[in-house]
Design a protein around this nucleic acid. Structure first.
Lengths: 241, 241
DNA sequence: CGATTTGTTTGAGCAAGATCAAAGATATCT
DNA sequence: AGATATCTTTGATCTTGCTCAAACAAATCG
């Protein structure tokens, strides 16, 4: 993907050199000149959990690469019922292209590192780079696939199947190898309440299902947010994957 | 959208002249030469309900414009639980681009008219036409929006809210005007069972909710599949839109 | 055209998960 | 460190929607 793997152009800013977005994200589609042009308008920033990137219905003024941390996309009903409709991790790109306003809220779930660009600059890059366009198309289709898979989970699975599916989603992010009985350490990027908002169930049910798995010995909590999955293949059977 | 609104090129086949796909679908992005080239490989066909266009996990060999009728996209769990993850109407384009295999099954829900193209031809058109590419991007983003909105419905709404949302989805398709108290005639493209698969509830619950609305006088059934919504704005309140 | 198949409605009872309530842990602040 | 606020767990009870069962209506077929 990286079209400049060998020769290092000295004009490329330090922060871009080993950036995940360049290795695996949208910046990897740009040539050196484009990257340099884009980086001139880019600002990296660290944000805390709860920081809103784009509000629902707001005009979209900025776009960001997620460099670290987790961003949640949420939709909310008038009476406050909320649903997390997507999670984005590094090196995903946040910001609905070709839309004037966003149809959901984008908010940091954990502390996160972002690389942010003004709308106009991103749009110019899109106009100039066919590779960027097809990369964005790819991401949109991947997100569509994920959303549809999650619809199946939300509408058809039981509470315990949902929890198992969620743990696998989080554990499976780096594409870890998993023979039967493989142990995997997992850091939960969401609170119990947020897991509930993601799975369409209450905080109490989330908690009960997690304690059940813990008492089963299928997972072991190291702290509220850290746990070890003792047998991935068992969870896969639970999730009906 | 139609770049040949005035002069009619005599080489354009009869069936393309007044085709919805040309007026409102992807064919509208093509110039006359491209349209003529594409049409040479296109076959129109009428299919009955239940006809499978693309099976889950199958290689995608054909792409189709929906010219009439309803196509449902479904995902199925190993034990048979099923979820409809999308509905496509004229002039939508069916077939996951840039994917080797489909992640869901596409199947006619009603009798439908399709205009079908071989994969290779569509891919050539995509390579040639930037307007077509951006049109496809637009559709992908629209579908992503719809999928995410539906996630909120599936996970958070009650049975009666789901039914109201569904009726509005079906009624709202042609973008009908609706002052308070507007009556709208609706033809359901899905059976009770399919509505259940779409809303993540059982056939019995679907039936009970529909009879409840019917006894309320909010809707009136003319036949199993045909009904009149007596007050759209009431339904909107029910759906928590 | 009656018979059979398929789809829909209705009822009764049940259970998964929601709600309400309170206690226990962990994190944050001064 | 101690106090306060927040998040999580656990328990008891209730409700929505599911399951099972049967009647009913509408299509399809010989």
């Amino acid at each position: 993907m990286n079209i400049q793997a060998n020769i290092s152009n000295p004009d490329i800013p330090e922060r871009c050199r080993y950036c995940v977005a360049r290795r695996h994200g949208i910046c990897g589609t740009l040539d050196d000149d484009q990257l340099i042009a884009l980086s001139r308008h880019a600002t990296q920033r660290k944000v805390g959990p709860g920081t809103t990137l784009v509000g629902d219905g707001e005009a979209i003024a900025i776009f960001s690469n997620v460099l670290a941390g987790t961003i949640k996309l949420t939709k909310t009903l008038a009476d406050g019922r909320q649903q997390i409709v997507g999670l984005q991790f590094a090196p995903d790109f946040v910001g609905s292209l070709f839309r004037v306003t966003s149809s959901c809220t984008a908010e940091a779930a954990t502390k996160a590192m972002l690389c942010t660009f003004p709308k106009a600059v991103v749009e110019r890059m899109i106009a100039e780079s066919p590779r960027l366009r097809s990369r964005l198309m790819e991401q949109a289709l991947k997100e569509l696939d994920e959303a549809r898979s999650w619809m199946l989970t939300l509408a058809q699975k039981t509470a315990s199947e949902k929890i198992a599916s969620f743990l696998l989603l989080i554990a499976g992010r780096p594409g870890a190898a998993h023979g039967p009985g493989t142990r995997v350490a997992v850091e939960l990027p969401l609170s119990r309440g947020e897991i509930g908002d993601f799975l369409g169930m209450t905080i109490e049910t989330v908690s009960r299902q997690l304690t059940r798995l813990s008492k089963n010995g299928m997972i072991r909590f190291q702290s509220r947010r850290r746990l070890v999955i003792n047998d991935i293949s068992y969870l896969e059977r639970c999730a009906r994957l």
